[in-house]
Amino acid sequence: MTVTNENCVVGIEYEVKQAGTTEVVDSNKGGAPLEFIIGKGQIIPGLENALVGMSQGESGDIMVAAADAYGEVNPEAIQTLPIEQFEGVDLVEGMTLYGQGQDGQTVQVTVKSFDDKEVNVDFNHPLAGKDLMFSVTVLSAREATADEVTSGVVGGAPAAGGSCGSGCGCH
């Protein structure tokens, strides 16, 4: 099956490097495939758009510009906070810390620098401002079930007694 641009469940194997480097920044090779539903914003847009039209079993190298990956670096996302907010943390420049954002979501920050009064932190994603090169293989592509379309979750169980129609991958 070919990857379509909406409500298609895709499973990929991937390796990603910062463009122009040989260092792998993320990979699932040898592990479980990354599965997601096209059109639900579950992966970076540049990769999602490039997968549309690829077929199951097809491999390719996909260059994703920073703007279509984790965005450009936002200078307003670099903040200075009082050191009291980091009580009990052994601060190290470059370390990654996780906290809770205003909406209750998990936020990741990188410690840029600190002294005995303040800590400079960067809320930008570590790959913000970087072009990325993905080496991907489409392992699977199928139509999403009605439940997957509604919930946005791959492999979600259909409602009791419900049906997802024909040819959508339900068992």
Rank of each mutant, 00 (worst) to 15 (best):
G152D: 05
T137D: 13
D147N: 13
E93S: 00
G30N: 09
F86M: 11
Q108E: 14
N120Y: 06
A141Q: 03
M95V: 00
G129V: 04
D116S: 10
Y14F: 12
M54N: 08
T137Q: 15
V25H: 05
T22Q: 14
Q100D: 00
G39S: 12
A67W: 06
L132N: 04
K40W: 06
D103Q: 10
Y98A: 02
A50G: 03
Q108P: 02
G165R: 13
Y98V: 12
I44G: 11
Y14V: 02
G152P: 02
V121N: 08
K112G: 06
G39L: 05
P82D: 04
Q102S: 14
G129M: 02
V149E: 15
S55Y: 09
I37A: 04
S151N: 12
D61I: 09
G155S: 00
T150W: 06
A160K: 10
G167K: 08
D68R: 14
E118G: 04
L51W: 01
G41M: 09
N124A: 08
D103W: 02
A32T: 15
P82F: 03
G161D: 08
D26E: 11
L127W: 11
L47W: 08
V9H: 04
G156S: 08
A141I: 04
D147L: 05
G101T: 09
G41A: 03
V121S: 02
D90H: 05
L81N: 06
E6A: 14
V92S: 12
E15Q: 12
I38E: 04
Y98H: 10
A160C: 00
E143K: 14
K117Q: 11
S27W: 03
P158G: 07
P82I: 11
E93F: 00
T2S: 10
D116V: 07
G101K: 05
L127P: 10
D90T: 14
F123D: 06
G129S: 06
M133R: 12
E35R: 11
H125V: 06
E15I: 02
T145D: 03
S59Q: 13
V149Y: 01
V24H: 02
M95T: 03
G57E: 13
M1R: 08
A144G: 02
T145F: 10
